[in-house]
Design a protein around this nucleic acid. Sequence first.
DNA 1: GTGGTCTAGACCACG
DNA 2: GTGGTCTAGACCACG
Lengths: 130, 130, 130, 130
Amino acid sequence: MVAIHITTGSNTPIFQQIVAQVRAAIASGRWKVGDPLPSVRSLAKELVVNHNTVAKAYKQLLQDGLIDSHQGRGYFVAKRREIYTKAERVRRVRKLVQPLVSEAITLGLSSDEIVSLLKQELGKLRQSDE
Amino acid sequence: MVAIHITTGSNTPIFQQIVAQVRAAIASGRWKVGDPLPSVRSLAKELVVNHNTVAKAYKQLLQDGLIDSHQGRGYFVAKRREIYTKAERVRRVRKLVQPLVSEAITLGLSSDEIVSLLKQELGKLRQSDE
Amino acid sequence: MVAIHITTGSNTPIFQQIVAQVRAAIASGRWKVGDPLPSVRSLAKELVVNHNTVAKAYKQLLQDGLIDSHQGRGYFVAKRREIYTKAERVRRVRKLVQPLVSEAITLGLSSDEIVSLLKQELGKLRQSDE
Amino acid sequence: MVAIHITTGSNTPIFQQIVAQVRAAIASGRWKVGDPLPSVRSLAKELVVNHNTVAKAYKQLLQDGLIDSHQGRGYFVAKRREIYTKAERVRRVRKLVQPLVSEAITLGLSSDEIVSLLKQELGKLRQSDE
DNA sequence: GTGGTCTAGACCACG
DNA sequence: GTGGTCTAGACCACG
């Protein structure tokens, strides 16, 4: 089980924080295919947010094919399947890369340092796979 | 003088586009310490946007320490000040890198593809600097 | 301009009725690329539903790539782009075909009659294209 | 006797799966007019589902006029009654066909592909009848 | 006890 | 005036 933590003061919407953390848990392999997610209402209670907020996060993950829903039984980590075309996937990642680059440059990091940080994060994933 | 271009079709807020371009102009050295920025109203006129939008961008740059304001005289490129320690800057960039990696991996992109997309974006910046 | 009508008594959720009608307006070519959609709040007022309900419908259409959003300016009919893999698209259509078949058989229509009805609807589209 | 199979993994409500299978059994002639249906509780036991679920399915079939109930004796396959006129049946099916066509077209499927998917589903039914 | 839909209304961002 | 996020709470479907 992986705990989910949110920061209410943050600029990042709560539902996106939840999406990011579930995504990370699945991407890293800590949550396996078939694992049940915390129920919408129980997680909402635990995080002290409205149930609609959790539902919104889960809907996003459902849409992206990362989780499945079974009416009346809850949400479960889904078997991986390709939903988006290559072009669409690249488009989506590019939309995340742009603000990263903008922010990193502003903070004074060099291109090499940025690439290096990215590789470090990718490396962590690979280790947890082994 | 460096022209600023905005895209109204984009979903990136206009004020952020302005911020990003001023940052790039300063980071690349095209705008030197002490150079005056275009006045809020003249830039607004040129870009055909609301002057509040330009003012908002300048306020952001002021807050970031990249420009100084002199009451009644306008805005000027500031002497470079380090606001954050190296460790803090790396920490901030890392926080942006992590969700990028999660999303890209769950979308099914390989590590090489992700690194490649990042390098592409960094390359675009370099070109616009020249 | 195409009017949107909803039936509150229906089993079909309001937001899905909106989605279906916008989709039909775009598929039939009555709404062209670049056309603005009614604003979330104005349509909500007109239909006498909550603005969140309209927003939910528009979000769905956005996700499917049928419309674009421009922060602060509204929603517009998007240029067609492929978002889903072939397999995903077939999966989605199949999910709609199954209940259709089930209902039609129950109503006592023959396979030939069902196929014929489908072809009629497809024919209507083709005519409006010419 | 015709076995009824349900899939709990599916997102189709269990009671609807039961309804669909009873309908198919009757439509195909495997269950004849006057045949008794399995009792609510015995079928619930066999399928390992709540008896309310089976009761709900039977209520639906009763409502559709496909089965009759005899207080204290159980449910029986009813004499076929036409409830809706031909025109009404066609109207109802057409209402399901229209959103299917809209969605499929916006997803980029060709008319032939849509017809082909429909025929596939109809084909599945025919096989399960034999 | 699961999730799904909807309302009424607040507060915020962008321009 | 655009849309975006969130709350509190209601009512419903499924089982």
